[in-house]
Design a protein around this nucleic acid. Sequence first.
DNA 1: AAACAGTGCGCG
DNA 2: AAAGCGCGCACTGTTT
Length: 444
Amino acid sequence: MALAGVEANGIQIDVQYLDGAIADVGARIQRLEGQFRDHAYWTEWKKLYGTNANLGSREQLGKLLFSHMGLANERTTASGKLAVDAVALEQCQHPFARNYIKLENLKKLQSTYLLGVRREVAPSGLLHVFYNLHRTLTYRSSSEAPNFQNIPIRDPEMAKWIRRAFVPRCNRQLLELDFKGIEVGVAACYNLDPQLISYVKDKSTDMHRDTAAELFMLPETAIPKNVRQAVKGSFVFAQFYGDWYVACTKSLWADIEKLGLKTADGVCLYEHLARHGVRERGECRDSTTATGGTFEAHVKSVEKKFWKKRFKVYDRWREQFYSDYLKNGGFATHTGFYITGLYGRNNVTNYPIQGSAFHCLLWCLIRLGRQLRQRRMQSLIVGQIHDSMVLDVVPAELDEVVGMVQEIVRSLLKEWRWIIVPLEIEMELAPVGGSWFDKKEFKI
DNA sequence: AAACAGTGCGCG
DNA sequence: AAAGCGCGCACTGTTT
């Protein structure tokens, strides 16, 4: 019922802007495609495929680059074919391949997002997306027509093109509220690992910083922001979701180059590691290839310490939870669901965390929506993204809305006793009349 | 023409 | 023993 309310509210779209953006991006795509058709490679491409040559076919591009031209590519897909994705094309280090990625990005922006939103906007100018609660294995939600939960944000350029179209109603502003680190917090509520709990509770500590110090042999007091960020994504979260050191080694090693990671003194991390006796990545083929002096061997030892020392209770919980599932044929979540069926180890230990984290948000969303109506306020909930909600607020109601949310979170902690860590709400606010792209951190 | 499988990529 | 989790959408190429 609550999500149906959000669907009915709808989010305002700046249709005039959107139509302009569609025209602009369309022209860019045309221009780029024209450049491709002037390139010598396109002539080769046509020799291979004749009238069937299709610039949009990655299969054809793969044949051209990796079979015909003989460029290297060791990446394969699930079914064993050569992968022709952004990583493989990046590795070609060739302008034709690089520009192809750019073109594909623009086409993704145009077809999935700009046109995807345009197609669904109602004549009123409101976009009523759908939220499902019956389609996920984890008891999260999903969103469709269009999917409101995967609108670009990480690439600022793509984010600007599409998020500019999402605007507040007249004389209002967009407010986004999200739970900070909710999945880590909820994980701690399942595994009760004292070290993890203390990391979550004590703001002076930072597990990403500490792990970064170990992985890159740096002092904990001198971890650059982008190094911490890379370790958070490529190691800590990956490990929590069930990744292993071989894959983590590859992505961390690639991050150094891709993100230009350096020590606080400006020394490239390859050079820094070499000074500490780690001169190469390692073969990274399987569990037998980690030989001494390689980054692979080092990451392996950090992983061991990570699970056997730092988060040993979390480690034991994963084992226990999975073996209980094997015995019982199912597992319960803290939010009252019992999940049965055939799943692997990573699924079983991740589903309850992912689902329950969403239920914290849903619990709050239900109450906020109800209270806004009861108080006859004009502010509306207009969207939801797993651990966040987007509101279209009347400026005069802003303080009251924020107060209501904080009170609701307090009552959540009282009601659900299994939540044994603090829950923090982060807010982002756009100016009155500003778009979703214009949101900025907002503190009271 | 519709359905399906496979691939790739956007988000949390 | 397995080897990050969850989604929706667009597009290509093939089958029905």
